[in-house]
């Protein structure tokens, strides 16, 4: 089986003007023409980006972040660290709540959302009902994932008082649609052969669920859930901007009050958080292999 010569080693007849080749040339041409237009037509000047004024602002901001000339920079203060770490913990809670809600919603809807080949034993009425539920759930997925987290958060803030919960719900709503779609596809791609075989060795439907379906889909579900969790932890800061609590909220407040050393502190905490979550999720994924 393994010694069949690969198809690529067989020489194909040379095609001079394939569509791919022409497209690549056209793309290059377009890029070069655009640059020429920018410099000649629009009189763009690279040097303007690095004008003395811009450089001064940048230096000012960066030295503000580094705490130059500040008596008590927040990132050297124990109390500030305690407060920031508490916020970090809250942010972690928010992300866990968000992925928890999204996963729960996905698990409750993923079966009707997947076009699993039916045994043909069900009645026409049931089939029609299944099709309606399928359409409804899929429509829900599309709506929930096409509205960005930030917009969900801005709307949900109206229902709840600002805090962790509205942030978590906003993140969960957006990710529910994404997880639902990804996981429904996993169920649809399920290899039916092992399942058929379990059935022919006398397993009941419930037994097939435990021994055939869950082991086959769970690793892939977990991979998607972990991936979305990583994304959520990075997005917590964005929903925090509109009052959804955690690090993001304080980050924005410190920015508006020009407390630059606090900004540095929050950024450090945020980096640590993202790094920790990446490590945990990579560890879990390796453990699943």
């Amino acid at each position: 089986m393994q010694h069949i010569p690969s198809a690529t080693s067989v020489r194909k007849p040379h095609r001079r003007f394939g569509i791919v080749r022409v497209s690549v040339y056209m793309a290059f041409l377009l890029i070069i023409a655009s640059w020429i237009y920018l410099f000649i037509g629009e009189q763009a000047n690279l040097a303007e980006l690095f004008s003395a004024k811009n450089v001064r602002y940048a230096v000012q901001f960066l030295s503000g972040l580094a705490g130059v000339g500040v008596d008590h920079p927040a990132f050297l203060d124990i109390e500030s660290w305690k407060r920031a770490l508490a916020l970090t913990y809250q942010t972690l809670q928010m992300s866990l709540m968000a992925i928890g809600f999204a996963t729960l919603g996905m698990l409750l809807t993923v079966i009707p959302a997947s076009r699993v080949v039916a045994g043909g034993t069900e009645s026409a009425l049931l089939r029609a009902w299944n099709r309606i539920v399928y359409g409804l759930v899929r429509a829900m997925y599309v709506i929930s994932r096409s509205v960005p987290e930030l917009i969900w958060a801005m709307m949900i803030i109206f229902f709840f008082k600002p805090g962790l919960l509205p942030g978590a719900i906003a993140l969960a709503l957006h990710n529910f649609g994404i997880l639902g779609k990804l996981c429904a596809e996993v169920v649809e791609d399920l290899d039916m052969r092992p399942i058929r075989n379990l059935a022919s060795s006398g397993a009941s439907k419930a037994q097939i669920l435990i021994y055939g379906i869950i082991p086959a889909v769970l690793p892939r579900f977990l991979t998607y859930i972990l991936y979305r969790w990583e994304v959520i932890i990075r997005t917590t800061i964005v929903v925090g901007f509109v009052g959804a609590g955690g690090l993001g909220h304080e980050f924005k407040l410190s920015m508006s009050w020009f407390h630059y050393t606090d900004v540095t502190l929050y950024l450090l905490c945020y980096l640590m958080l993202v790094f920790a979550v990446d490590l945990i999720s990579a560890g879990l994924r390796r453990w699943m292999q």
Binding site: D191, R193, P194, N197, L198, S201, G202, A203, S204, A206, Q207, I210, Y211, G212, P215, A216, L218, P219
Partner: peptide
Amino acid sequence: RQQFDLVGSLPVLHNVLAGRLHEWGFGKS
């Protein structure tokens, strides 16, 4: 049937014990 009949993500043990599912109730499985 052909070799693609086993649940790949499970340990061998469970794939062999699947032969007992017709004897077992849900609780025991």
